[in-house]
Design a protein around this nucleic acid. Sequence first.
DNA 1: TTATTTTTTGTAGTTTTACTACATAAAAAT
DNA 2: ATTTTTATGTAGTAAAACTACAAAAAATAA
Lengths: 278, 278
Amino acid sequence: MQLTQSIVRNLATLRKSERKVADYVLENLSDVIRLRITDLAAQAEVSEPTVIRFCRAIGCRGFQDFKMTLAQDLAASPGFGQITVNETDSTEDYCHKVFDSTADTLRKVRDQLEIGVITQAVNALSIANRVEFFGFGASGAVAADAQHKFFRLQLATAAHSDHHIQNMSATSMSEGDVVVAISQSGRTSALLQSLSLVKEAGGTVISIGPSNSPLAEMADIAIEVNVEENTEIYTPLSSRIVHLVVIDVLAIGLAQRRGPSLKEHLLKLKKGLKTLRV
Amino acid sequence: MQLTQSIVRNLATLRKSERKVADYVLENLSDVIRLRITDLAAQAEVSEPTVIRFCRAIGCRGFQDFKMTLAQDLAASPGFGQITVNETDSTEDYCHKVFDSTADTLRKVRDQLEIGVITQAVNALSIANRVEFFGFGASGAVAADAQHKFFRLQLATAAHSDHHIQNMSATSMSEGDVVVAISQSGRTSALLQSLSLVKEAGGTVISIGPSNSPLAEMADIAIEVNVEENTEIYTPLSSRIVHLVVIDVLAIGLAQRRGPSLKEHLLKLKKGLKTLRV
DNA sequence: TTATTTTTTGTAGTTTTACTACATAAAAAT
DNA sequence: ATTTTTATGTAGTAAAACTACAAAAAATAA
C-alpha cells in the first residue's frame, strides 16, 4: 500500500506535533528522502523523537525505514510530480512525461484489478468455441490487436468495429461463445445494442471498461478498469494501453491453461512468419 | 541511469574485494536494501571500508546514498525479479507480472529513446500534408490506433495493413508527405517494399522498430525501439505497447506545435462523440 | 477554580551506524 | 631483492538514529 495513503489515513490519530511532520512531509515529498532526521525535525519545527514517533505512527519501523519506503513509493509512481505536458515542455520533457504517466497508470490499474473477475474471464474464454472482440474508435484498434493475439492461441476469433457486422455476428452466437467488449467510456450505445443481441443468443459478454457504466452492468463478467482520463489536451489517453495490457493478461492466463501443447503450435507459427522476412 | 548498469559498467575497474561486493549486490539486489553496511560487508566477506569504497566507485556518495538509489531503482523497475510467467503462477501472480513487465519495458525504452530523432519526426509530421501509417499483423493494430489518434489532430491520415493498398497509396505520395512504418521485427519484406515506393515518390519515411534492422536503415527518420522480446511463451509481447506510447509521444509533440487552436477543435470532436452515447 | 491524572513533547544521554585515518599486506615495478 | 605502488583491513571518530526520562501541556475530577 502507498505510504502517502497511510499518512493521510492516520492523519486524525496523529498528535499535534506529529501532524506538523505529516504536513511537511506531504508538502515536500520528494525533498524529504534527502533529509536527515535532524533536518526534518528542524523543518517541521518539532524535536527528533517526535519525527520518530511520527514514523512509527504511520506504520514504519523507524526513520530509516520511513525514508526508504517513501523513496521506493516515489520511484514507483512518479505521478506525484506533474505529468501533464504543458506548452513550454522540451521534447525530452514530454517524452519522459508520456512514458512515465503511462507506466504510472499501469501501476494504479494493477492494484485495482479484481483478480477473481480475471479468473472468471479466463475460465469463460478457455471453454469458448468462438471468441470475438467488439470495439469502436480507439477500442476498435484494441479489438484488432486482441484478435491477432488470441488467434495465435489457436482460438476461433474475430474482431469487429462495424456495428452491422457486430449485429450479424451477435445473432449467430451460441451458448458458451464469448464476446469481449472493449470501451473507454462504457456507454457507447451501438456497442450496448450489439451486446444485448449477444446475450439474447446465449453468448457470454466479458467487458473491459470503466465501472458503474452501462457496459459493466450489462456484462456477464465485467473487468473494471478505471483510468482517470485527464481532460487536459496534452495528456495522452492511456486507457487504450491499459486495455491492451488486460488483453495480455487474459492471453497469458489462457496460454497457461493450455499448457505445453501450445508451445509446439507457437513454434510452428513463428516458422511461418519467418518466411515473410528478409 | 540505472544503478545496476553503472555497477556492471564499472565492473572492470573495480578492485578484487570491491568486486566481491559487486557480485553479492547483483546476486541479491532486493535483499541488499535491507542490509546495514556491517551485514553487507560480512555477506560479501570484505571489510566495511571496502563496501564504502565500492559505493564511491560506482558513483554514489556513500553507503546510505547507494542503498537509497538502489531502492528507488528497484521500485521503479521490478523487472529484476522474475517477470516471466510460469506454469504454477496464480492469477494474481501473472496479473501483476504482466503489468509490471510492461511498465518496466516502458521505463527501459524511455531511457534509450533518442530525443533528437523524436524532434525530427515531429517536425516532419507538422509540415506534412498527408500522414499514413503502415504495419502488418500486430503492428497493423498499432497503425490503426495511430490513425485514429492523429485524425483527431486535424491531419489527413490513413492506416494500411494491406500490402496492395499500401503500394497504391505509396505511389501517390508527394514531397513532404509522411509514412510512419511500424514493425516489431524491422524486417518484414512486404513493408520494406512498400516503403521503397514511398521514397521513390518523394515521401518521408519515419520508422518505429528495432535498430540495426533493414527498416531503420531505410527510414529517413528512424525511431529506434529495442525491446528484448523474451522468447518464453508466457511472456507478453510488449513491443506493441511501446510503439503505441511512441505514437502518443509524437501526437503530444504535434499537439504542442499546433497550440491553442487545436483545443477548440478537440472540444468540437468531443461534443460530436457525446451523441453516440447513452 | 484547583488538584490530579493523563497525555504530549522535548532534553539529554546511549547505541548504533557510517565513515576516516592510518597501518599492514599484497602486488607491481625497478 | 628492494623499492614503490596499490589494495585491504584495523581501529578509532563523527554522526545519526533511537531511548529513557523528565518537563510541560492538556484533560479530567474534585
